[in-house]
Nucleic acid binder design. Structure first.
Lengths: 263, 263
DNA sequence: CGACTCTTTGAATTTTGTCAAACTGAGTGG
DNA sequence: CCACTCAGTTTGACAAAATTCAAAGAGTCG
């Protein structure tokens, strides 16, 4: 995994993890004005119907994209972690068709659309990389849609957990198959489209089957291969770079895994 | 609705329907080499796992994007009509994470990625418009996800029909609330994530409630307001231009509707 | 007229949702 | 340090939604 000093602009780190930027391009990104803001848990960042003039990058913490139906039901469409740009689409879509809110306390970096468009107009390769990140977001929606439409609640949950672990692993947030799972069961239910009660039962089943351990917000994968097979999880849709994939082996092999250094 | 002579490059028409192109930009698009191909119904255009070097534009007919799960179940992720670019994402994503197939006989225009990237690198505004179309695709996935997760089969079906009618109306393919619905019940089922049998029952209900008439592949909306209200359909996520929206009134008003001229 | 695909129907079963209540654990203030 | 609160989790019983299986009907095309 390429080294990015902590002094780097957060966006440089994100972009470099997808594509190799030239020094010139890095410099251009570094000049982007970034407004740093801290938010508490369960706060809205942007709401459906807004006409934002800026997008944000998640620097610390976790956020989620969601929609509310006319009957007041919530559907969570995506979870985001440090390095993600959850509402980048608003650069070209005037009206927000979904809301974005924090899951935990967050540190965000706001970037004005004007500045971003200017950067893109000047640097086609950067524009490509940003475009690409939004295309990967779309790929995740496609996979979630398949998950919702063609799998039962049990495998939907395992699929969500597989994706979560793989994404966190790719940025070095998984240690010995253990990571944070910062959502409540209500939020998990809204993400996989079931009731809270049913989420609870599914989680019990997963614990009983010794696939995972989940205490509080701490998730441990006990049997990766079965978890993956039950969900039919195939990480292709995440379009990770080879060095981010790390070809996940069975949990028993975790000691020899090329896990990134703790931050 | 702005007039686009039939002599125009199909992509020019599509782009102009989203954004106003300068003559210079139009000229650049017109120079794009377009390979015209005719396909029968139920043929694959690209498959999951492919590494395409070109994308296509639908010129005539209808296509659909789909995924197949490990257990062999199919989920349809999107339907496309003339003017759409269903696999534009492959311009920046090396591997296809979903398949694209025809629904009916189709006329397609293939464009090499190289040529497209070159065009984008030179013309930032065109790149923006193309980027934007992929962002709208993502917005549709978000809405479908909400549909799947938080609505029952009945309202999912009405929602699908509302979207279909609005999209076809925007390109002038709806006449007196009547349009083509070129999918079988099996395909509808795979799109809304239910069984074929259940789709059939839902359609019966919709007919019994006098919301629609559906004979063969011909759909007529009999009561737009109720269809819309049942589904909670709000077209914001389609990000249509004001002149494409046409603020859909009740079916009874259809005679006075500003329907675009027949093509 | 077949051969075919697509639609329709009925009955039994499974999955999931709903409602209501109890339990747990982490703060909080007296 | 102990009630107390509060959000989040867990449980059970019942109801609703949707699936499955199997078979029959309809429409279309050569």
């Amino acid at each position: 995994m390429s080294a990015h000093p902590s002094t780097a602009h957060p966006l440089v780190r994100k972009l470099s993890s997808i594509f190799d930027l030239t020094e010139d391009e890095k410099a251009a990104v570094m000049r982007l004005p970034l407004q740093i803001v801290h938010l508490e848990a369960d706060q809205d960042i942007v709401r459906e119907g807004d006409h934002p003039s800026r997008s944000c990058a998640v620097l610390e913490g976790f956020t989620h994209t969601y929609k509310t139906t006319a009957e007041g039901k919530r559907q969570i469409l995506a979870f985001h972690l440090a390095g993600d740009t959850p509402d980048l689409q608003s650069i070209h879509l005037a009206v927000m068709d979904c809301s974005l809110g924090t899951l935990t306390r967050c540190k965000l970096g706001y970037i004005q659309h004007d500045a971003l468009r200017d950067l893109c107009a000047r640097h086609w390769r950067i524009a490509s990389v940003l475009w690409r990140t939004t295309l990967i977001d779309a790929a995740k929606f496609r996979e979630w849609l398949t998950n919702m439409g063609r799998r039962d609640a049990y495998s939907r949950m395992t699929h969500l957990l597989c994706e979560w672990v793989v994404r966190l692993r790719a940025v070095g947030l998984v240690e010995d198959w253990t990571c944070e799972l910062p959502m409540t069961q209500v939020e998990l239910a809204d993400a996989i489209g079931t009731s809270t009660v049913h989420v609870n039962r599914v989680l019990q089943e997963l614990r009983a089957a010794k696939l995972i351990s989940l205490k509080g917000q701490t998730l441990t994968v006990l049997n990766w291969e079965r978890l993956r097979d039950v969900s039919g999880f195939d990480p292709t849709y995440l379009h990770l770079r080879p060095d981010q994939r790390g070809d996940l082996p069975h949990a028993a092999h975790s000691a020899s895994m090329p896990d990134s250094a703790p931050r």
